[in-house]
C-alpha cells in the first residue's frame, strides 16, 4: 500500500492505517519534539498528544496542502513549542536550549544502542557546520527561510539551494550506510 492510500484510509478512521502511519513516523516526531523539549518523559507525552490530535483531526488533513509527514511535523513542532511555554514545563526548570540536534547525537550515550543512530551519527559529524544549522532551523525548529537567513547571516535567496545541497549530502551518506 502506498502512502497516499494509507493516509486516505487513515482519514476514513481505519485503525490499521493509523497504526502503520504511527510506526512510520512516531520516532521521527519523537526526535523533533525531544530536540525542542529535551526531556524523555515530556517528549513521549507530547508525541502521544500529537498522534491523538492527528487521529481526531484526521479529516482536516488535505493532501494538496502538503505531505502527511509535513503535516505531522508541523503539529509536533507546535505542540512541543507550546509545551515549553506551559507553566508545568517551566516548573521543571528546563531552559529553552540553543543546542542543536547534532549535540543530541554526539552527547547522548543512550542513543548508542540504536543502530540507525550510530550510523547516522558518524555521517552527521562530517556534515558542514552550515548544513547542520540549516537542517536544524528548517526541519527541527521550523524557522521560515527569512528567519533562517537572518540567524545564519546569509542571503535569503541562497537558503533554498544551500539547503538542497545539505539534504543531498545527507542522502548520499544514508545510502552509503
Amino acid at each position: 500500500m502506498d502512502i497516499e492510500t494509507l493516509v486516505s484510509n487513515f482519514k476514513d478512521k481505519d485503525e490499521k492505517a493509523f497504526e502503520e502511519l504511527y510506526n512510520m513516523y512516531s520516532d521521527s516526531m519523537l526526535g523533533i519534539i525531544y530536540n525542542i523539549v529535551r526531556s524523555h518523559d515530556i517528549a513521549e507525552e507530547v508525541m502521544q498528544d500529537v498522534f491523538i490530535k492527528a487521529w481526531n483531526n484526521a479529516t482536516s488533513y488535505d493532501s494538496s496542502k502538503g505531505r502527511f509527514f509535513t503535516w505531522l511535523l508541523n503539529i509536533s513542532r507546535n505542540a512541543a513549542i507550546d509545551k515549553t511555554r506551559s507553566k508545568a514545563y517551566k516548573d521543571t526548570g528546563k531552559n529553552l536550549n540553543s543546542d542543536y540536534f547534532v549535540d543530541i547525537l554526539e552527547n547522548n550515550e543512550s542513543l548508542d544502542s540504536k543502530t540507525d543512530a550510530i550510523g547516522i551519527k558518524k555521517y552527521v559529524k562530517v556534515l558542514e557546520e552550515k548544513c547542520k544549522k540549516i537542517i536544524e532551523y528548517l526541519y527541527f525548529k521550523g524557522f521560515t527561510q527569512k528567519e533562517t537567513s537572518e540567524e545564519l547571516d546569509i542571503p535569503i535567496g541562497t537558503i533554498k539551494t544551500r539547503n538542497r545541497n545539505c539534504i543531498k549530502q545527507l542522502r548520499t551518506m544514508l545510502v552509503e550506510q
Binding site: 512510520m24 513516523y25 520516532d27 521521527s28 516526531m29 519523537l30 526526535g31 523533533i32 525531544y34 530536540n35 524523555h40 517528549a43 509527514f69 540536534f101 543530541i104 547525537l105 547522548n108 543512550s110 542513543l111 540504536k114 540507525d116 543512530a117 547516522i120 551519527k121 552527521v124 537542517i135 526541519y139 527541527f140 539534504i167 545527507l170 544514508l174
Partner: peptide, 10 residues
C-alpha cells in the same frame, strides 16, 4: 529527513 529525525529520538 525521517531517518535523520528518528535518529535523535530517545
Amino acid at each position: 529527513v525521517v531517518r535523520l529525525t528518528k535518529s535523535v529520538a530517545p
